[in-house]
Design a binder for these strands. Structure first.
Length: 443
RNA sequence: CGGGGCAUAGCGCAGCCUGGUAGCGCAUCUGGUUUGGGACCAGAGGGUCGCAAGUUCGAAUCUUGCUGCCCCGACCA
């Protein structure tokens, strides 16, 4: 992409409403624009990152055996009356009346709708297990939206729903999502820690929040630092095998949010291993048994010919919130530092002097990299060098290539690693090779 | 939902107390000089002062109502 033809409205000054660093940087880097309290337009650069996060989530969901579909944002109130949640959900639910005076709502979540879809088609235990998910905009009319997309009213969420014959197989479905989540966040370069969460009226121990450590996090967390070094399940993990050993490894070291915190158990961890910090919740998995299947009649016939309600679980990832969490975890004074896997572009190519011999060198490098699948943002604008450097650092692409008459005198271009600040002078060929290799290994 | 605050050019702000020609910095446009880490000089364009009503000869400024937004606290992907 040529910057001269792109839409990247970078702000030099920080908008006053932005309190936390991720919100500030998203606004400054031209990724986001607020349209209303807690409601945002995703500008081109922000949208690219959002789609990259979404793709990773999809790949890992698919790998774990979940099947993607897409449900609407607007739902009929009737379904929610069936589950009893239309009255129970309260003011967080945005209620809408259509021209025929029908009660509609902007979905805050989709348990009712997915249960309706399931019960309309599935009759036999032979069709289980089943896990259906979608990635769709949700709306929750928060009392106080804040921190940009960290707590917006409209947000993009992945929500998966599992259907199983009994609690035992539902636990396996749960474990699959647990492993998928470990992999998903790891692929974005995030350390997400599963923590036991409140299960509400259902009880049991099958609910975990996945929390990323960040000083701006909304909740206080306590953990045994051993959990930070646990290995992430590999890409070739067999999701049909017994995953419980992995779950055991990850749930044994102490890790809890403040509402589940147990001082005594935490003390037993030992002073040298205790970590108390703040965290951002980016995922939440939940087993809720027959809470929806029973009232809504989602039943299958089992091997004995008896109709039984299915056991369900739901599994959420805050896709838009992840973008904020990623920036909270990856930035410095100059701006964002994207991990390769979610970077809006892999490389920023800076033409130091348009109209000079740098043009030709840039063009050929640009074409070569793009042809090799490297996503390049080519700054071909005729502006001052300082503005280009500052802008490139701000938007945080993993690598910058600086091409100008000075380096070309010796036939070289400069390659800068945004994260480490490391720079090296290379021939254009060597630079291209290095960048192509870096993109292949890191994304 | 309780408490606090803000609304004036695209962005950041001053002006309001004490009513009288709407201003500053950045950004934008034009010309020139510059050009490897957010340049300089000169000039130009851009405003129903959030909306509505009231007081007044006269309202950005005073009064009332409304709307929007932000911050702190209790609640949530």
């Amino acid at each position: 992409m040529r910057l001269s033809r792109y839409f990247l409205p970078i702000l030099k000054e920080t908008p006053k409403e932005a309190e936390i660093v991720s919100h500030r940087l998203m606004l400054r880097a031209g990724m986001l624009r607020q349209q209303s309290a807690g409601i945002y337009a995703w500008l081109p650069l922000g949208y690219r990152v959002l789609m990259k996060i979404q793709r990773i989530v999809e790949e890992e969901q698919n790998r774990a055996g979940a099947v993607e579909l897409l449900m609407p944002t607007i739902q009929s109130a009737d379904l929610w009356r069936e589950s009893g949640r239309y009255e129970a959900y309260g003011k967080e639910m945005l209620r809408i009346t259509d021209r025929h005076e029908r009660d509609m709502l902007f979905g805050p979540t989709n348990e009712e709708m997915i249960t309706d879809i399931f019960r309309s088609y599935v009759r036999s235990y032979k069709d289980l297990p089943l896990n259906l998910y979608h990635i769709q905009w949700k709306f929750r009319d928060e009392v106080r939206p804040r921190f940009g997309v960290m707590r917006g009213r409209e947000f993009l969420m992945k929500d998966a729903y599992s259907f199983d014959l009994d609690q035992e197989s539902a636990r396996h479905a749960y474990n699959r999502m647990f492993v998928a989540y470990l992999r998903t966040f790891d692929r974005m370069g995030l350390k997400a820690i599963p923590m036991k969460a409140d299960t509400g009226p259902i009880g049991g121990d099958l609910s975990h929040e996945f929390i990323i450590l960040a000083s701006t996090g909304e909740s206080e967390v306590f953990l045994n630092k051993d959990i930070l070094d646990l290995p992430i399940p590999a890409e070739d993990t067999d999701f049909d095998s017994d995953l419980s050993p992995i779950i055991t490894d990850w749930t044994t070291p102490y890790a809890a949010t403040d509402e589940m915190h147990d001082e005594e158990a935490f003390a037993a961890v030992g002073d040298d291993k205790q970590v108390s910090a703040r965290g951002i919740e980016v995922g939440h998995i939940f087993y809720f048994g027959t809470k929806y299947s029973e009232p809504m009649g989602a039943k299958v016939t089992n091997s004995e010919g008896v109709e039984v309600p299915v056991h369900m679980g739901s599994y959420g990832v805050g896709v838009s919130r992840l973008m904020a969490a990623l920036i909270e975890a990856n930035h410095d004074d100059d701006g964002i530092i994207w991990p390769m896997s979610v970077a809006p572009f892999h490389v920023g190519l800076i033409n130091m002097k348009p109209g000079s011999e740098a043009d030709e060198a840039c063009e050929s490098l640009y074409k070569q990299l793009e042809a090799a699948g490297v996503e390049v943002l080519y700054d071909d604008r005729d502006t001052r060098a300082g503005a280009k450097f500052a802008g490139m650092d701000l938007i945080g692409l993993p690598y910058q290539v600086i091409v100008g008459p000075r380096g070309l005198k010796t036939g070289e271009v400069e390659v800068k690693n945004r994260a480490t600040g490391e720079r090296e002078m290379l021939s254009p060929e060597a630079a291209a090779e290095k960048l192509i290799a870096a993109v292949r290994t890191q994304s």
